[in-house]
Design a protein around this nucleic acid. Structure first.
Length: 318
DNA sequence: AAGTTAGTCAACCGCGATCTA
DNA sequence: ATAGATCGCGGTTGACTAACT
């Protein structure tokens, strides 16, 4: 049996808000506040809207000091850094950007920023895949299920940044990978039995070691920006950890070999600088020698060959 | 000029968390 | 302690528009 609907769907208006509805809602809330009950609010002011819809409209559009569009470079950097580190916690990310809403940031990430960061990599793969006329089909086949996966996507972004920083990335050098704990070894064995791809266990080895480091509580040390939002990243990091899946999420700066990682602050600064370069197209003309370009492309191809879903990772560790 | 595709963004939906009686 | 109500979040959808063929 499902949950009772929060409102009478049949008598509720949906779709875009009219200026009159906006005015009614805004005037009421500015004068009386929300009254702590969004569900009852629309009835009080004679709006044929669901309470949730009113709340959303107020939070995302009507409340004071909301900024729309025109994200600054600094905001881009903050969003990217936080996404790579904590994933799609849009409300937390929004709390660090005064005047921005989680919905706005989510849309901005999905439609622009993600492409900005991943686009170069994807374009390179497409070029490599040759002179095929049917590029649409190629793209679909090349990324069967990877980009919808938040954790893998973040790993991919992180690898891309690592590759930019260090063309001789440790991802292609097993000697640099961290030593495994017995439990991790066991997981790798399980994975081996699941998939015979030569790249699969190697990449999973690093994914898992990263994940386990994250699960062991190693954290990125964020400096809290001046914000009246109250929640710090660290607070939310702990408070929000309510599932095994979250524990498994890859905290991008954790679990890296110390020779490459340095301390967290240095890595964060390097990451920040690299993001800055990418986002501002300062390396748009950067030329990777073909060999390095191919090597980097192969690292990303690992994900194709792995054909692994987050579910399969979850099952192994839970 | 008309049709198609891709990009953008406001809004909706469902679910877990939290509150309250 | 518990069940129902509400909140808040993240994923997804769909309308609209611009760019392209």
């Amino acid at each position: 049996m499902g949950r009772a609907p929060c409102c009478d769907k049949a008598n509720v208006k949906k779709g875009p808000w009219s200026p009159e509805e906006d005015a009614k809602l805004k005037a009421y809330i500015e004068q009386n506040g929300t009254g702590g009950n969004w569900i009852a609010l629309p009835q009080k002011i004679g709006l044929k809207r669901c309470g949730k819809s009113c709340r959303l409209r107020w939070l995302n559009y009507l409340r004071p000091n909301i900024k729309h569009g025109g994200f600054s470079e600094e905001e881009d950097n903050i969003i990217c850094s936080l996404y790579i580190s904590i994933g799609s916690r849009w409300s937390i990310i929004a709390a660090q950007l005064p005047g921005r809403t989680d919905n706005d940031i989510k849309n901005y990430w999905n439609t622009r920023l993600k492409k900005k960061l991943l686009g170069r990599r994807k374009q390179s793969n497409l070029n490599r895949l040759g002179d095929s006329k049917d590029m649409k089909g190629v793209e679909e086949n090349a990324y069967p299920n990877a980009l919808s996966n938040s954790a893998l996507e973040r790993l991919q972004l992180h690898m891309q940044l690592q590759s930019l920083q260090n063309p001789f990335s440790f991802y292609s050098n097993p000697a640099l990978w961290p030593k495994l704990l017995p439990l991790q070894e066991k997981m790798i064995q399980n994975l081996k039995s699941m998939n015979d791809s030569p790249n699969y266990p190697a990449m999973i080895q690093h994914v898992l070691s990263n994940s386990l480091c994250a699960a062991q509580g190693q954290k990125v040390d964020f400096h809290e920006p001046a914000s009246s939002a109250g929640n710090t990243i660290q607070e939310n990091h702990v408070k929000g950890s309510n599932s095994n899946v979250e524990e498994l999420e890859i905290k991008s700066l954790n679990g890296m070999p110390s020779a490459i990682r340095g301390d967290g602050t240095e890595q964060l600064s390097a990451l920040q600088a690299e993001l800055d370069d990418i986002l501002n197209n300062r390396n748009a003309g950067y030329y990777f020698p073909q060999q390095e370009e191919d090597q980097m492309a192969e690292q990303f191809d690992c994900f194709k060959e792995m054909n692994v879903s987050k579910d399969s990772l979850d099952k192994l560790v839970v």
